[in-house]
Amino acid sequence: MMTGTGGNPLVLVVDDFLDAREMYAQYFEFSGFRVAEASNGVEAVEKAIELSPNIILMDLSMPGMDGWEATRRLKADPRTQSIPIIALSGHALTGFQQSAQQAGCDAFVTKPCLPDALVAEVERLLASPNARRSRRKGASHA
């Protein structure tokens, strides 16, 4: 696994579902990103502090510490608070989106989200001058 020291942006993919996590990881690597993975909130916070990724893809519903809690912690930690976080959820209800936003997520993407669309969203966020104030709405699939 690569560290944040390389030239390519490092994406931390947080998902308890291995298939999804690895699918996205594979595609981000294919797309030229460096990828780190975490399978729960605790691990996500640890990895984020340890690796200082350029961006975090955060699944919300996870066992143990969930995505909302992890986001709140990361956004509360000066070391990690500037890292853009894209919330990923299979829940399409607006409540989820709002709660994610309240927790500190910078964008919200409803699953299923094709890898190339997700990559496009990540690139958009990273390209914006202030990655922290990015567009709320992610590319959703209607």
Binding site: F17, M23, Y27, A92, T110, P112, C113
Partner: peptide, 26 residues
């Protein structure tokens, strides 16, 4: 329904994702 929607979406996400990856010749 909301939960089911979530539960459907999660595996569909993987299916569509991998199909996409495969179709892109990765």
């Amino acid at each position: 329904l909301a939960n089911m929607s979530h539960e459907f979406r999660t595996p569909l996400n993987a299916i569509l994702g991998y199909a996409s990856i495969l179709l892109q010749g990765i």
